[in-house]
């Protein structure tokens, strides 16, 4: 299966294609798409340039990125694994 992802135009944050064609920031809420659905979602996302920048498809297995770029896609879905951007340590320094 696949999910559709992109960056949000206004702030660049990672987006996924969710239920009813609504964008979600959570990979867990992304719709799992078969090939035909994925192509339709890509076309729909391309028609929403006010929201989706550079939409593309990511292979998933049980909701987790599984393709060649799975680790990169994992980090895109969670945010940086270290450093000041992590909410658990933000402002700690």
């Amino acid at each position: 299966m696949k999910v559709l992802t992109a960056n949000r135009l206004s702030d660049g944050r990672v987006l996924y294609w969710g239920a009813q064609g609504l964008a979600t920031e959570a990979l867990a809420e992304a719709l799992w798409l078969d090939d035909a659905e994925a192509e339709r979602a890509l076309a729909s996302a391309a028609a929403r340039p006010d929201l989706f920048v550079n939409p593309y498809l990511v292979e998933v297995n049980a909701g987790e990125p599984s393709g060649r770029d799975r680790f990169k896609e994992f980090i895109r879905s969670t945010g940086p694994t270290v450093g000041h951007s992590r909410p658990d340590i933000e402002g700690a320094a």
């Binding site: 960056n7 702030d11 660049g12 944050r13 990672v14 920048v53 550079n54 990169k72 980090i75 895109r76 945010g79 940086p80 951007s85």
Partner: peptide, 17 residues
């Protein structure tokens, strides 16, 4: 937009601009 923003130091990275 991309070449214009790059000339002004703006990238689009993994999580944000």
């Amino acid at each position: 937009f991309k070449p214009l923003r790059l000339m002004n130091g703006v990238y689009l990275q993994l999580h944000a601009y």
